[in-house]
């Protein structure tokens, strides 16, 4: 209940803040649309030369692009803006105040800044997913849709956990400003199905840095390509990643209290 109240208050304040910068929001929404055009053009160039990409047809790749964008919405709405806030807080010491507030510090640093107009990207992402699935002619069942939703949430949890781990490292290595640049590079790898990469790279992308889990896997579930135990396995990975990252964050905060001056 308290978390709900915190979330809605932070959201409300951030909406007010974004409303004050109207031009900024409009320009960024236009840019986002332009990028989408560019991504679709790239796909059409690829498919003018080949029928399938790692066994995936054009419609399915459009749906994948949608899922990839969905995960990116989370990054652009929460992860990037709060990383900036977090790094500034470490530098100027204002993070001290966060640790003195009677609420979960991980939650607080995750929702301080929410770029609300990114909801527009959410709309684009959902359009792509629906368009891709319907035009592929694939038959999907309600069960597949539920699995897709569950795995998307799990995928987002994995990406979020990866972010929490990366910024927690700041407590051990004080000079770690580019903590999430590496993440942006990895996110870009999730734009294509994991099957297009060589086996060794696919293994890295899937298991070590599980971007594919967040993008390809949900779509596989929607296509009905996954067994129930695979779905369950990926859900468990999502929950596990979340728990482990929260532990690492707590250890980092303890470290901060022990060492900072």
């Amino acid at each position: 209940m308290h978390i709900y109240k915190l979330l809605t208050t932070f959201l409300k304040v951030n909406i007010q803040q974004d409303l004050a910068y109207r031009a900024d929001a409009i320009v960024n929404m236009a840019l986002s649309l332009m990028w989408l055009g560019w991504e679709l053009t790239s796909l059409s160039i690829i498919f003018s030369n080949t029928e399938t990409l790692g066994g995936w047809g054009p419609s399915e790749l459009i749906a994948l692009l949608g899922v990839w964008r969905l995960v990116n919405v989370v990054m652009a709405t929460i992860v990037w803006p709060n990383t900036e806030k977090f790094n500034n807080g470490v530098r100027d010491g204002s993070l001290d105040y966060t640790f003195l507030q009677p609420a979960n510090s991980q939650l607080l640093i995750s929702i301080t800044r929410i770029v609300v107009w990114r909801a527009w990207d959410l709309l684009l992402a959902l359009t792509l997913i629906v368009a891709g699935i319907t035009s592929s002619g694939g038959i999907t069942t309600p069960l597949n849709v539920i699995a897709f939703l569950g795995l998307t949430i799990s995928g987002v949890a994995i990406i979020y956990s990866l972010w929490i781990v990366l910024i927690s490292f700041t407590f051990w290595f004080t000079k770690f400003d580019n903590n999430v640049t590496i993440m942006q590079a990895l996110m870009d790898a999730g734009r294509y199905p994991a099957q297009v990469y060589p086996v060794w790279l696919r293994a890295i992308v899937t298991f070590i840095i599980p971007i594919a889990v967040a993008t390809t896997v949900p779509l596989q579930a929607l296509r009905g390509d996954l067994q129930w135990w695979q779905i369950l396995g990926f859900l468990v990975i999502g929950v596990g990643a979340f728990i482990i990252s929260a532990r690492i964050w707590k250890a980092g905060v303890r470290r901060y209290s022990g060492a900072s001056s």
Binding site: L6, V13, Q17, D96, Y97, Q101
Partner: peptide
Amino acid sequence: QRNRLSWDIPAADSFLLNQAIYR
């Protein structure tokens, strides 16, 4: 020497956040 309040938003909004955080 350190800021508790967020620079980009009015203090009134920061107060509301505090109200939620401190219940």
